[in-house]
Amino acid sequence: MRVIIVGAGSLGIHLTRNLIDQGREVILIEKDEAIAKELAETLDCTVINAEGTRPDILEKADIANADAVVACTPNDQNNILIGLIARDAKVEKLILKIEDKQFMDIASKLGFYHMINPASISSSYISDVLRGINAIELSNMVRYDVRFISVIATEKIIDMRLSEIPLPENSAFIGVYRKNDFILAEKDPKLSEKDELILVTRADMISSVNEVLGRNLD
């Protein structure tokens, strides 16, 4: 997998190191010359010192052949712009870091589904702790070959109910996010456009799950 990461903040650097450890090909773009120079000397990946919102720079990073683009600069508007450029280049997976809720709404309206809001995640966790709620982080539940998957409803399954979708063995739906609502799988909702399905499966079943759900990741 070839991943372009724009922004060498704490999130960008941590992600870059994780992907390198996984054997992924990473291209990291950072506009700060001193930071870019230091990372180029310490990370086993391509580091480009430039402004990542420039189409010519993303072309230099060979965005046309990227499997994923992660926009995690400190600027929400820049991250959305990077996402738009990457989408125009037909990049399959786009992940945007968005700090401000109003820009999350804008990004959602523009059709971006994978957004990270670190402040919201942290504040929700702290709020739960203060209320005496022992919330279990999803990352602590992913063990062995179990995988939790988020999938946007494709044309193949829109208007179907969850019970009508023939998931492979060792797989099950958890629920559906619909706008600001979460619907448990036991309610068997009929799927609508932009619904986000949450399911659990095993690593060796992911390809079969994608096929059933109409996701073409070739």
Rank of each mutant, 00 (worst) to 15 (best):
R2Y: 08
I48T: 12
N170I: 04
A86Q: 07
L28K: 11
D188F: 07
N210F: 07
Q22H: 14
D56L: 11
L217G: 07
E30G: 10
N18K: 14
R215Q: 07
S207Y: 09
T53N: 11
N18M: 13
I206C: 05
V176D: 05
I27K: 02
D44N: 15
V212F: 00
L162W: 10
I63K: 06
I183P: 04
M205Y: 04
K156A: 13
R131T: 01
G111K: 05
D159A: 04
Y144V: 12
A71D: 06
I165K: 06
Q22T: 01
R143G: 00
V176H: 01
V26R: 00
D21K: 15
I206R: 02
I165E: 05
K60E: 15
S207W: 10
D181W: 07
E99A: 13
I27D: 00
F103W: 15
R17V: 07
G214I: 05
N140F: 02
V142R: 04
E33M: 13
I35G: 11
L167T: 02
L162K: 03
N180F: 06
K101R: 13
L138Y: 05
F112C: 05
D218L: 11
D128I: 00
K31N: 14
I206H: 01
N78E: 15
L199Q: 03
I116P: 10
I149A: 06
E41S: 12
L81M: 11
S108R: 09
I29E: 02
V209N: 08
I5L: 09
N65K: 13
I165C: 12
P74D: 15
D128N: 10
R178M: 06
P74C: 15
V212N: 03
D181P: 01
G175K: 08
N134F: 08
A34M: 14
D62G: 05
N117V: 04
V91C: 04
I27L: 00
D100S: 09
I157H: 11
F173D: 04
A153W: 13
Y177N: 10
L96W: 13
I63H: 10
K156V: 03
I63G: 08
I98N: 08
K194E: 14
R17P: 08
I121S: 05
A8S: 15
L15A: 07
E51A: 13
R54N: 12
D88I: 02
M160L: 12
A71T: 08
C45H: 01
L11P: 00
I198N: 03
A66H: 02
V26C: 02
I20C: 02
S150M: 10
F112W: 01
D159H: 08
N49S: 15
I27T: 14
I35Y: 12
E169I: 07
M1P: 09
S171L: 00
D21S: 14
E38P: 04
